[in-house]
Design a protein around this nucleic acid. Sequence first.
DNA 1: CTGAAAGCGCTTACAG
DNA 2: CTGAAAGCGCTTACAG
Lengths: 357, 357
Amino acid sequence: MSAKKTPQKIKYSPPSDTQKVVRRGRGTGRVTITDVARAANVSPMTVSRALTSPALVQQKSRDKITAVIQKLGYVPNQAASTLASAKSRVIGVIVPSLTNAVFIDTLSGIRDCLSQAGYHFLIGESSYSPDKERELIATYMAHAPDGFLLTGIEQQESLRMQLASNNIPAVRMYDLSKNSNDLTVGFSQVKAGYSVARHFIERGYKRPAFIAAQLDPRAMKRREGFRKGLVEAGLDPSAEVLLPVPSTIELGAQLLAKILEQTPDCDAVFCCNDDLALGVLFECQRRGIAVPTQMAIAGFNDLPWAAQSNPAITTIVTPRYDIGYIAAELLLKTLKGQPIEKSRIDLGFELAIRAST
Amino acid sequence: MSAKKTPQKIKYSPPSDTQKVVRRGRGTGRVTITDVARAANVSPMTVSRALTSPALVQQKSRDKITAVIQKLGYVPNQAASTLASAKSRVIGVIVPSLTNAVFIDTLSGIRDCLSQAGYHFLIGESSYSPDKERELIATYMAHAPDGFLLTGIEQQESLRMQLASNNIPAVRMYDLSKNSNDLTVGFSQVKAGYSVARHFIERGYKRPAFIAAQLDPRAMKRREGFRKGLVEAGLDPSAEVLLPVPSTIELGAQLLAKILEQTPDCDAVFCCNDDLALGVLFECQRRGIAVPTQMAIAGFNDLPWAAQSNPAITTIVTPRYDIGYIAAELLLKTLKGQPIEKSRIDLGFELAIRAST
DNA sequence: CTGAAAGCGCTTACAG
DNA sequence: CTGAAAGCGCTTACAG
């Protein structure tokens, strides 16, 4: 035993006026499980049990321990717990963007599910870059996460292997995988795009266009479904503008301009998200293009302004919050070793038909 | 030395086809600093130094260690590091809302500053509740954060004491404190409100109103400044609707309706944020109220739609990203024990005058 | 520039 | 239901 040990304990039998915790020697100077044990006249193990599996501890000891914890203001040291148990209670979460309201809702779902189960999370923004995603995952590995929640199903094989070989489960969100080894929670992006095409066709639009920014895999799947719908109905799917830059309202306005140059007889636009759709609407207003009579507009996600603008914007309602919540739930089940009934959870989507089409 | 130690090492001299790391006994089964040390023929201490203070390690050893780390895929165990050094490299960040784009920008600034310095952060959403904020801080304490970044300066004295007695520095964002012991990075909310009033007055509006949701302390300070400006100019500041509910575009539309009932001769509205302002604009469009001739609209924050709507919305441009970045910088300085020149950093704001006024 | 020893504050794995 | 011993994987504080 080191000589430093003794003075460090002074603070737990203070001359009554010594409130302030003083750091000395190693450690944080915080109250430890040993301090609690001593004050409660039990062993540290019993305190540990009282905290993690109270059922194993006698009622009397438990009460005493609870009181002492309260009195001393004991807060368990997560680092020590993680080190000893090899369980971090941390989940790594990677989303493509934090400035996109879509993923914020998903994070809310994740948080609501995980925090009630005592988990914390490290949130990373990949900026839609697979390399950035891999980097983030590598960094998070240092925190020994118990699991990951990732966006999309396009992660490279090497990443997949890395997670598998470290025994770290991952749930992928916003898409559905055909591989039954993957845990995925989302909806069919292809079908969503297809349903917008069907809607345009039923409404009688003759020359629908597609505009997209970012061009992440999910946007490209929406395009695929949209084109399929148009082709099936004998329409020309060639009207489109795709730009690999971040999506904004302002860009929506610019993309409408490009479409009109490229396809002057365009009478409907499917925007890969609601930011673009609002920008298109604003630009139509500036140009005096009547919506929907001269130009129909459909968006994606049902962000707050879609239902409020004039005219309100037709859009695909996506289960953003639920995707997060249910993906987190699925991950927790996996972590607890509970059986998984379905590795692929399709939450579907809805088409909200509004005045813009 | 335990008997379990030996088999656990098998994986580092595998029969060449054994790629997969197997968990056995305690620990995570991951590569440790000791494994690296052994493979590099140095002590664990030297590996540790090579990682944290490379200057103290001979070039030759450093190169060897770097190569081995690469080869074995070593990732330091944060929990062990935190436990041993009593430094977590974690910063607790509390913002009122994650669904508000304002704070997302601030988080980007924080992330850009902290991640380059090797810090991570725990992000909490207080939902504008002081109690929730205190709870979050208590939870985060278990992770032994090196510091906190908080929103607003209204934290209670007990919280202030708790942080102080644990020697955990905090920087407060989005407002400025008169107390020079507080570290604050923001701007004067009162002055921002005042400048909107001045703008309305200069434009000749006679009956400006104020609408607000959430009613957090910063919104109330904007109101205070706005009223001051009106009163100084001899105008009646009584036209206002304040609702303690979350701010949305839809609510903006409803609040305009209330103001028009309450104050039919109202000719200008200052909205405590741009969500409300967009809702007001949409509602004016629906009611056929011409903006700005019949009704002027001013918002707050300059969110993406403010410059894009028709007409574009006059608003206060706030340094959201910089607030995060500079607050994080200030916190890092404090953590490193560097001298602080200014404990109160006023980043100011701008009034962007657009067509809505 | 390098290393052996001890310790950080928990939990695992026993043993009673 | 409870506890003593050992260990998790790092870093501190020395000593050379």
